[in-house]
């Protein structure tokens, strides 16, 4: 068969649906809530903390190719990127570029 359906079926059933269901549930729960309600403030704090947890997990327990970069380099890249963000008047671009430069430079310098 030139056009195998299996990977597309897998994408729909074990890729799209298990992930999308959270967006639908969020829609159902969020619909009845007021923007300034206490519960929305709490949910926002939980969502923000979750973003931070995602950051920490990718840096400390990286997937694939990032795992080949030493943990010290990953942490330095995150820290110096954040410092650059603060120094350059809260510019997200500055933070990302400095963080990437430290990561790639550090990985290249420490490569055997």
């Amino acid at each position: 068969m030139n056009f195998p359906m299996e990977p597309y079926l897998a994408l729909l059933l074990i890729g799209f649906l298990p992930s999308e269901v959270w967006r639908w549930l969020g829609l159902l729960f969020g619909r009845g809530l007021d923007e300034n309600s206490e519960i929305i403030l709490w949910v926002r704090a939980v969502a923000t903390a979750l973003v931070a947890a995602v950051v920490a997990r990718i840096v400390l327990f990286p997937p694939g190719a990032l795992a080949a970069v030493p943990v010290e380099v990953r942490l330095a890249a995150l820290g110096l990127g954040f410092l650059a963000f603060l120094v350059f008047r809260r510019s997200a671009f500055a933070g990302v570029i400095v963080g990437e430069a430290v990561l790639i430079g550090g990985a290249a310098a420490l490569a055997p």
Partner: peptide, 18 residues
């Protein structure tokens, strides 16, 4: 590949901080 994967944490951190 390592640089591409690092894009996610560094950008989430600085833009959430902003």
């Amino acid at each position: 590949a390592a640089g591409a994967m690092f894009m996610t944490p560094i950008s989430f951190l600085v833009s959430a901080a902003r």
